[in-house]
Amino acid sequence: MAENVTPRVRVPSSAAAGEVITIKTLISHIMESGQRKNSDGNLIPRSIINRFTCDFNGQNVIDVTLEPAISTNPYFEFQAQVPEAGTYTFTWYDDDGSVYTDTKDIAIG
């Protein structure tokens, strides 16, 4: 597992039914591209988050494929319509097989 990986998510705690909200996510990750060499001339192995998904009550909201050129600590900001109260589940998939998740509840009102 890559070191010091911490996901952070910001979702409003409540919204009106049908409202479009802005979701922000950030995960600390080195995002080593696999293209660089160390001082001995050997390739530094690739270590990136390669996929990010967000689901709402089991239904997919966004599914992103990340490529090696994406910089350290990838940040995503996107909008989603809130049909009902429920839970957002955020998932990041690491090259090394680790999976990081975070959840946020949202109420209607």
Partner: peptide, 12 residues
């Protein structure tokens, strides 16, 4: 603070 990447280091 959410947009400030320095906050990751504050957490650390």
């Amino acid at each position: 603070d959410f947009d400030n990447p320095g906050m990751l280091f504050v957490d650390a």
